[in-house]
Design a binder for these strands. Structure first.
Length: 119
DNA sequence: ATTTGCTCAGCTC
DNA sequence: GAGCTGAGCAAAT
């Protein structure tokens, strides 16, 4: 479960550096459309890494404005955490975008499969 | 709805 | 190098 990349400068295959991996995660996160959500797992499957790594990356995000990390939730539909304001803020943002959140859970129908977008 | 076991990158020492 | 910690997941209860 490790992201392998082609190093253009050194002309070799190697393990992705942390910054490379995080950068990839941020880019993919930006593909989630307004009013939709996806799971940590969905992103992790695209990159072939551990789902927990996605959470690590989003938590440590250095571009809080342009990265809609509130649209990334647990695969069971629950909101999980949000480093900037917690679940309360995460829920508010989603509701603002038209997602119906019952308690702390989002219906399946709002999930989008990013692998299909990338196909 | 809650508990339990699994997992692995990153961090600390 | 060993041990701990999760913005997780899935199955069982």
């Amino acid at each position: 479960m490790t992201l392998i990349v082609w190093d253009v400068e050194k002309n070799v295959v190697r393990k992705a550096r942390r910054e490379d991996l995080y950068e990839a995660i941020y880019m993919i996160t930006q593909l989630i459309p307004l009013g939709r959500v996806t799971s940590y797992k969905n992103i992790s499957e695209i990159l072939g890494v551990n789902p927990r790594l996605i959470g690590q990356a989003l938590k440590n995000n250095d571009k809080p404005i342009i990265i809609p990390c509130h649209r990334v939730i647990a695969s069971n539909g629950y909101l999980k955490n949000y480093s900037r304001g917690g679940i309360v803020v995460k829920k508010k943002l989603l509701v603002l975008e038209g997602v119906i959140v019952k308690g702390e859970k989002v219906s399946r129908k709002y999930f989008i499969d990013l692998k299909k977008i990338l196909s």
